[in-house]
């Protein structure tokens, strides 16, 4: 098995409005907690949508643990758990029924695992409540429960802390670190907030106007710059000048 969790080659997708992502080359190694940092409209979600096959690229390819997402989708998706763009739910189903839908795709997931994931994400007490009654934060927690249900080797989370209260942010950050340390899970997380990235990720890629501006390890960034904000502003500023 390759040590590369995600290998992105020349990935491009440009929409009619000119936004998108252009010629992205990136490798995320197994065990990384990779942060994809950039402002709104930078191309973070588009990249994640292409990594997970929701959007077809204009050019380029993505390999997940050696399986091409365009040619071998089912095998590539076997090891991925994800939450893209917003956490959605069927309003007429309960949290438990939601997770049962996901569990059917993974034979190893049983009822205990479903309960465990609801407990981890703090929605166990609402398991029999219909999702239409859920707040944004609860839907976010349900989305994360669904993403971790199959014990995936790679978790792709698009702005996972959005809509969460302070306690929720703390819980999810701790969960990410635990999964990374204990199960060796690889993460690919997007955010527009430098603080989230600094506290959560081991490696950061800065994306701006559809281009990957730079990527480096968190440790290196913090030893070379006074703060994450400085690094981010410096990288974005350099790109704007270019």
């Amino acid at each position: 098995m390759t040590s590369k969790a995600i290998e992105i080659t020349n990935l491009s997708k440009i929409y009619k409005n000119g936004r998108g992502i252009s010629n992205l080359n990136l490798t995320v190694n197994q065990g990384d907690i990779f942060g994809f940092l950039g402002p709104n409209g930078a191309g973070k979600t588009t990249t994640m949508q292409m990594i997970t096959g929701l959007v077809k690229p204009d050019r380029g390819d993505v390999n997940i643990f050696g399986n091409s997402i365009t040619e071998n989708y089912v095998d590539a998706m076997k090891h991925i758990g994800c939450m893209i763009e917003t956490a959605e739910s069927y309003p007429y189903l309960t949290a438990y029924e939601h997770l049962q839908l996901v569990a059917r795709f993974y034979p190893q997931v049983d009822q205990r695992r479903i309960d465990k994931c609801m407990e981890i994400t703090g929605i166990l007490k609402y398991k029999n409540e219909k999702a239409k009654k859920y707040s944004v934060g609860m839907k976010q927690r349900l989305g994360i429960a669904a993403a971790i249900l199959s014990r995936p080797k790679l978790l792709i989370l698009d702005e996972p802390l959005n809509g969460l209260d302070f306690e929720g942010i703390f819980d999810i950050r701790r969960l990410i670190k635990e999964l990374s340390m204990e199960e060796g899970t690889t993460f690919f997380i997007s955010s527009q907030f430098t603080h989230d990235m600094e506290l959560t990720c081991t490696r950061i890629g800065v994306v701006y106007s559809g281009t990957l501006v730079n990527e480096d390890y968190t440790q290196n960034i913090l030893s070379n710059y006074p703060s994450f904000e400085n690094y981010y502003v410096s990288e974005v500023g350099r790109n704007e000048r270019v």
Binding site: T52, L54, E88, V102
Partner: peptide, 15 residues
């Protein structure tokens, strides 16, 4: 329209 199609598609199953 309710953005729930992705809940099915983001699993190991072809379109």
């Amino acid at each position: 329209s309710s953005n729930t199609m992705k809940l099915t598609l983001l699993n190991p199953v072809s379109r």
